[in-house]
Design a protein around this nucleic acid. Structure first.
Lengths: 244, 244
DNA sequence: CGAAACGTTGAATGGTTTCAACAAGAGTGG
DNA sequence: CCACTCTTGTTGAAACCATTCAACGTTTCG
């Protein structure tokens, strides 16, 4: 059993604040229902008025928005340990959809319980806000990728970011990681056509930097890739919580 | 005196939660210092470890990230009544810089006071989280703009979004708004070159949709512009707070 | 008056998309 | 078991959108 599966919410928030036993007990009361979703299914649809967020326990999810012309923009990918739909429950209606990329398991966190827990456990509110800030920082970096980098750098930077995130939860390391995404997912995330994604992956492979094949990302020359992408993981805020 | 200048923080958060007199009193204690910054000055620099956020009282600010090659991507613009640097204080270090576009006034909200207020006033935490979620929703929509729309639609959508936001604080209406941005700002925000911004603005003007001239945005045919941009302001979450 | 910031326009270049075609593997039903 | 379809991956050529380079006009300001 993967480490995240034991107490996902507590583990997630422990990264952002030192929590007491009492506070951890409150957290235990929060996650009641464990739910499963099949690959390809939508967990939440844009415009839906959500009453619960989730912590992803296993599998991959993506959040996306559809365009009237049929195009799709993927906002972010959620991997085990990530919050999912936190923004959706704080707004009138969800501003994007969530799709399970593979079969997944997730813990349901009802909005009502979460808000109520804020009053008994104020430190929890700070931890949630920190977690939300870190997620937003990833979206911001993604925005910069789309606005100011060419296809090669976008891809390189994206693959490195995923690697860094997965390493944090022991699903990857310096040499690579398993990745269930198709080239269409990459295209929808990076604002490219699937055809061009294919070409970019080929050029990165031929440059001896990274390979994307059979559901596995392999870093061949990680240093070179980092240099190409100007990858600096500072925005991922991957630090232990400050005791103060 | 513009309505926002009286009690900026309370006004902002009242949009996201119904606050009692006691809670409003706590808010009054939060904003002590009012600060001014000159046009062109940075309020916060990327990598800085911030100890305070701000509420913008007057003027315009933008948040941005610089690239190693000298390029700049503007993340968002802050207008009167907006939070500024909320994410920066929740992370180890600020993930982006903030620049005053014109001379501005802002209220300083110390991180420590904000976090402490969460324990005495739990509803405040919820309101802040909602405000942060709305800001994130704007960044998400911006991301979709960059990833999946051509220059014309990007510009049209962006000008409409700004109009909707400014109308909320009485700084704009259906016919247009004053706008201190240069074409370079637009280029840095929309991921375009300044030259192309100029061409796009011309084509929108010649199509009889909108004009951008002498610091003023004028909607000529707002309906047509909305149709071109597929603009749907739902993500701005512009609703009164739910009493419950 | 000169410099600097901003705006404007044309022409050449280039990154990316679109169109089209084909290959390989997985799943399905006859 | 084989044909069939669907999904995913792959590659070439043409078309297109946006960038870059270059030049010039306008306004502001010291």
């Amino acid at each position: 059993m993967h480490v995240i599966e034991r107490n996902p919410l507590a583990l997630k928030l422990s990264a952002f604040a030192v929590l007491s036993d009492a506070e951890l007990a409150v957290l235990d009361g929060l996650h009641r229902k464990r739910r499963s979703f099949q690959a390809g299914r939508d967990l939440v649809h844009e415009g839906q008025t959500e009453r619960a967020a989730y912590i992803l326990v296993s599998g991959w999810v993506c959040s996306y928005k559809l365009q009237p012309d049929g195009g799709r923009q993927i906002i972010n990918f959620q991997i085990p340990g990530d919050f999912l739909g936190l923004r959706s429950i704080m707004m009138q209606a969800s501003d994007c959809s969530f799709e399970a990329i593979v079969d997944i398991q997730a813990i349901e966190v009802p909005k009502q319980s979460l808000v109520e827990a804020f009053s008994t456990t104020p430190k929890l509110a700070t931890a949630i806000l920190r977690a939300a800030s870190r997620d937003e920082a990833m979206v911001v970096e993604h925005l910069v990728r789309l606005g100011r980098r060419d296809a090669g750098k976008r891809m390189a930077h994206f693959l490195l970011e995923l690697g860094a995130r997965l390493s944090l939860v022991d699903l990857g390391n310096q040499s690579g990681y398993d990745c269930p995404l198709t080239q269409y997912h990459l295209a929808d995330a990076l604002g490219l056509s699937a055809v061009h994604v294919n070409r970019v992956l080929r050029s990165l492979r031929e440059a001896g930097l990274v390979s994307f094949k059979d559901g596995r990302v392999k870093f061949i020359n990680r240093t070179g890739l980092v240099r190409l992408a100007d990858f600096d993981p500072a925005y991922l805020d991957q630090t232990r919580p400050l005791a103060a």
